[in-house]
Design a protein around this nucleic acid. Sequence first.
DNA 1: AAGTGTTTGA
Length: 640
Amino acid sequence: MALIAATMVKREDGDLGLCRGFRLPSILEGEGDRVLRPPICASKLANLEMACYIFPVQTMSHRKVPHRISLLIRNKTQSFQSDSHAKQSTLLIKAYLDNGLLKQARQLFEEMPERDVVAWTAMISGYTAYNHHNFAWMMFKDMMRESCDHPNAYTFSSVLKACKGMKSLSCGAISHGLSLKHGLVGSSIYVDNALLDMYATCCISMKYACSMFQEIPVKNQVSWTTLITGFTHRDNGVAALQVFQQMFVEEAEKSAYSFSIAIRACAGITSYTYGTQIHASVVKHGFGHNIPVTNSLLDMYCKCNHFQEAENCFNEMIQKDDITWNALIAGYQNSNPIKSLQLLSQMELHGCPPNHFTFSSIITACTNLSVLTCGQQIHGKIFKIGFDQNLPLANSLIDMYAKSGNIEDSRRVFLELANRDLVSWTSMMIGFGSHGYGNEAVRLFNQMVDSGIRPDTIVFMAVLTACSHAGLVNEGLNYFKLMIEKYKIIPNREIYACVVDLLGRGGRVDEAYDVIQSMPFRADESIWAAFLGACSRSPHGKPNLGALEVLDLKPRKTGVYVLLANMYASQGKWGDRAEMRRLLNESGNKKVAGRSWVEVHDRIYSFVAGDGGGSLEPLIYQVLIVLGLHMVEQIQVSQL
DNA sequence: AAGTGTTTGA
């Protein structure tokens, strides 16, 4: 294949220009623009002085649609002529892949008369780099079928990364077998580490990962970090820290990576004690100004509720990145949502653009703040930046609007979503449920199943709660059955609590009691609280069931005593009521009074039952009277 | 000719 090369130079404006030789035929110009302009960014060009176009002569015809324009970025020190044709093509493939041009890379690859391991491996790792793990695996399968060339350590480390990406243990095990066959296990640390990582990611337990780790003849920093990461991501912080400790015992060299993940493990188990110890070690090892390390320290202090130390970390950091800001914003989202909002504006003032992580925390902060106008402003901002189709964000907006009492806007966000995931549906169902729209929630559940999404435990909790609040007892029971029989989901405590609540509120107290007795585990105080709560709210009586059982548990929830006290009071059993009050005082806990609040103009008015809401009191009672009149009217209309 | 592992949310 004859090739024509034209030399390209970097123009003053940073773009590429045609230097000498010939103009591109007009038919190629469009293609040239498309292929060349987007992938070449100024940073890529900074250390490249020269680039070459190569394209087959036959495509020079003006009439024929060009087959391809290939872009070759070369370092000027490299000699162009000395490379073989296969090497040139592989280089081109690399250049395409580096610039995200997967289709062009694939086409060039398909057209290569002979493909060597390097070309195959480049394709596999290219697909993996862009998260097309399935394509990477298909490439590998094709390679094993077609190629007489042997896969090497590079190939297997890429393939195993694809298996990790697919979370496929079977593919991983096949790759393990093949890499053993090619003698690469125990001889290449890259393959060994990739295998370790694959088993740590794809298996339910860490058993295989641990034995893989044992078999690595000479472990390096990566091996240790990968093992610790496996435990940490599995929420086994204790085991992760044991491995980290073992690194000290064996005097293995520590890296910033191993410190970051170990600190994350501390955060996961909220161990301030280990966290501070590791902090000291971080400083000793000279990682005190490493950004990921200090970011995870900052996060750890937040998760351990040591905000002063988190602030210290933050202030002492010489360099901050978006994660630094996000970690602190996320840290304050529950305990001090106003602080989160203040940090957001500071973040922007420092020229650090917020991303979807930031907004996710900020929406939670707004939800906690229950100030609808704040949430609306943030929503506007999200829309302006174009994050409104970001699923996690949209899902938290659905939740925020619902919790702020604005179910219409909650629904609007839901409807405007082009794609919905399980969380979107669940959030919407919970929103409908809490607003008393049980039928809407049920309808949504059916729509969700029709759209091909498989419900999980939390979805069923949402449906059961919605049914319970809307008095749809039989529907709820049907869903409980559906969950067990069709979806083979084993009900947990929360689900049983929902069913008990459903039956109790519906006045079917005996059935609720039977459910509690037939549960595969002993009822805890939460289940009894659900039972007593539901029964006391129902006018159907018989609430004495379960009272003695729950007292046996010596519950720590103050609500349980309050429920029982109110129950006895309603029956005129004043002696028993006094006993409950005594137990409540004895427990030393105080029941926190439920608070209501309302946003009027730019002020929040908060009040508990009986205190009247301060300056708003006359207004609240006026609204209440009007609402009462509306209700009476509605009842009269429905009785007509 | 080509490399591995870390930090922020739900």
